[in-house]
């Protein structure tokens, strides 16, 4: 649950609120839960919807259409080896948060939470084709965001990290 909510909203007080609200809403809707999906899927669906509501609220507050919750990472980190790993995580994390909510959602569910494509489609109530399409686009967008650091580093090494 933390991975889903923090993946969507980042580390902030609102993420904690959304996390709490997810479980409270689940408790309140227990009598309506028919077991058509697993408990985990049901909870995740609530968490995603609440996270998207929070993102919408932030956008309205800022008066912008984009979902740029963080300042841009124009200045790339010091290439000191000791900080590199943490910085890479921070950069990737920030890159994810720069994605549009509909792309961020599929990345969080599929690549961070580890749901399969069909489970992701079930949670979001979208066709599998739409999820695949959004995953591909999200990864392309992330590639552009992360390119200056990650791909250059990758090319210098000339080997896979996979």
């Amino acid at each position: 649950m933390a991975a889903t909510v923090i993946g969507m909203l980042g580390h902030c007080p609102e993420a904690e609120d959304v996390g709490q609200e997810t479980f409270v809403r689940f408790y309140q809707s227990l009598d309506k839960f028919r077991g058509e999906s697993s408990v985990g899927t049901y909870l995740t669906r609530i968490a995603i919807n609440l996270s998207l509501n929070e993102l919408k609220r932030r956008r309205q507050k800022r008066g912008r259409f984009s979902s740029k919750d963080d300042e841009g990472i124009e200045n790339f980190p010091d290439r000191n080896e000791q900080k590199q790993r943490k910085e890479l995580k921070d950069i990737v994390h920030t890159g994810i948060r720069k994605l549009d909510p509909k792309y961020r959602t599929v990345i969080v569910l599929r690549l961070i939470d580890g749901y399969s494509t069909s489970e992701t489609a079930q949670i979001l109530k979208l066709p599998v084709g739409t999820v695949l399409s959004r995953l591909a686009r999200a990864q392309l967008k992330l590639k552009e965001i992360l390119k200056p650091l990650y791909w250059d580093k990758y090319d210098t090494r000339g080997e896979g990290n996979g």
């Binding site: 933390a2 991975a3 923090i6 993946g7 580390h11 890479l88 995580k89 990737v92 994390h93 994810i96 990345i107 690549l111 961070i112 580890g114 990864q139 992330l142 590639k143 992360l146 990650y150 791909w151 990758y154 080997e159 896979g160 990290n161 996979g162």
Partner: peptide
């Protein structure tokens, strides 16, 4: 390989609680 590395980096970037 690049895509694999990126996906791995994404998965590893989050250890939230």
């Amino acid at each position: 390989d690049r895509i694999l590395a990126q996906r791995h980096a994404i998965a590893e970037s989050q250890k939230p609680s």
